[in-house]
């Protein structure tokens, strides 16, 4: 089972080391992890996608992470109505011949072309992970040179912030 956790941590050096260190030493299976600033200057928000066998294992992940001194709060977003997004940049081969085909595909996926040169294009896509996977699958035929993905971020719907949940 997959769960999405919003982890609010102190914005301090070493915090990510503590989190990633804990995840690896407890052998937790993390699918993605994305960190960035939050609405508060001294708080970093990390979205962790964790794959566990059961609720007990999830409880372990949450409790162990909570023990870290710099972890302020953990919210299990899986249980609340929420939005998930991931951003991908995909560099794909684009010759004169197939460029227009590519543009069509990009259009269909509501992606954006953010860089073009004589041989390649960079496509930017925001969406759920499955949508990015689907685009990548189509682009394989053109020849993907490289992909970078941010990892999933998630936010609850409605007026309440994670720090107040």
């Amino acid at each position: 089972m997959k769960y999405t956790l919003a982890v609010l941590v102190e914005n301090r050096p070493g915090v990510l080391t503590h989190i990633s260190g804990l995840i690896s030493r407890r052998a937790f299976n993390i699918e993605s992890i994305a960190a960035g600033h939050s609405e508060e200057v001294d708080t970093t928000r990390i979205t962790i996608d964790v794959e566990v066998d059961d609720e007990l294992e999830l409880e372990q992940v949450v409790h162990q992470l909570s023990k870290l001194v710099d972890v302020i709060k953990i919210v299990n977003l899986t249980r609340v109505d929420h939005i998930e997004r991931e951003l991908a940049l995909i560099k794909v081969k684009a010759s004169k011949v197939n460029r227009s085909d590519l543009v069509d595909i990009v259009e269909i996926f509501r992606a954006k072309i953010v860089d073009v040169n004589r041989e390649t294009m960079v496509v930017e896509l925001t969406g759920e992970a499955s949508k990015i996977d689907a685009l990548c699958e189509v682009l394989v035929d053109f020849g993907i040179i490289e992909i970078v993905r941010t990892g999933k971020i998630a936010l609850s719907r409605g007026p309440i912030a994670a720090k107040e949940m």
Binding site: P13, G14, T17, H18, G21
Partner: peptide, 14 residues
Amino acid sequence: ICGITTPISKHNYL
């Protein structure tokens, strides 16, 4: 030392 002691300490500071 902070990197090394992270998995074996309750907390650490540099």
